[in-house]
């Protein structure tokens, strides 16, 4: 079976600093892989590389067996990204933001689709409000709506729970459960072991730019995984 995404000996350096050191990862259709790792482990760099935002220094990324190159326009059509930033224009309303992205992606019946999504994320009543007036939780919900606007088969989520209150976390949980349909593939980075474990079908730990742990969820309990995670995080702590 061809993986949806294959990361092959991926390296990325920023000047002298190596952010990724030969990452190998195969993600199959319908999988929900959660990448854990301490700050600076390379999680965001890996997601940015997969989403074509940054060019790898060495190695390859393959999408359904085809290498991602400069002209990966069709690949970008198949990816939805939730990053640290909202990617939303503060001077546009929620509806205008989604309409802009819907048009860029060529979403059919964009207005109807946007209304459906705004209902889904519970923001329909704020659709004509400019985004700068939204709370963090509302912004994150709108960000998810933006990311799934074009029904991407691959969803990349970079610490989507960061900064959310309990209610916003619940809404995000429900959204993710609704999106898990067995066809969509997820790669999510997280610091929250409970949340990550809850959603994952596969768990991985990225440490100092390398994948040091990669197992299916059924092969490990949450406690064992937590132990494993802390083992790697402690290893990163400086020794005085």
């Amino acid at each position: 079976m061809t993986p949806v995404i294959e990361v092959d000996r991926l390296e990325k350096s920023f000047g002298h600093k190596k952010a990724l050191r030969g990452v190998n990862l195969k993600v199959f259709e319908g999988e929900f892989i959660v990448l854990f790792g301490p700050n600076g482990a390379g999680k965001t760099t890996l997601l940015k590389s997969i989403s074509t935002l940054i060019r790898p220094t060495r190695g390859r990324i393959l999408f359904k067996g085809k290498e991602i190159d400069d002209g990966s326009i069709s690949l970008r059509e198949t990816i939805g990204l939730v990053s640290h930033n909202t990617l939303l224009y503060e001077d546009l309303t929620a509806f205008e933001n989604l309409l802009f992205y819907a048009r860029m992606y060529g979403v059919p019946n964009p207005k109807q689709k946007i209304e459906e999504l705004l209902h889904m994320v519970g923001l329909y009543h704020r659709k004509d409000d400019v985004v700068r007036t939204f709370s963090r939780g509302m912004l994150q919900r709108l960000t998810i709506a933006r990311a799934i606007l074009h029904d991407p088969p691959v969803l990349l989520l970079d610490e989507p729970y960061t900064g959310l209150d309990v209610q916003a976390m619940k809404i995000l949980d429900d959204l993710l459960y609704n999106l898990k349909d067995g066809l969509r593939t997820f790669i999510m980075t997280s610091h929250d072991i409970q949340k990550g474990f809850e959603h994952a079908t596969r768990l991985a730990i990225l440490h100092s730019g390398e994948i040091v742990f990669d197992k299916k969820k059924e092969e490990i309990s949450v406690l064992e995984f937590e132990e494993e995670f802390w083992k790697w995080v402690k290893e990163k702590e400086p020794v005085f």
Partner: peptide, 13 residues
Amino acid sequence: EKGCIEGLLIAPC
């Protein structure tokens, strides 16, 4: 601001 450039860079264009 808010990383909108990333939104444009990952758009299929």
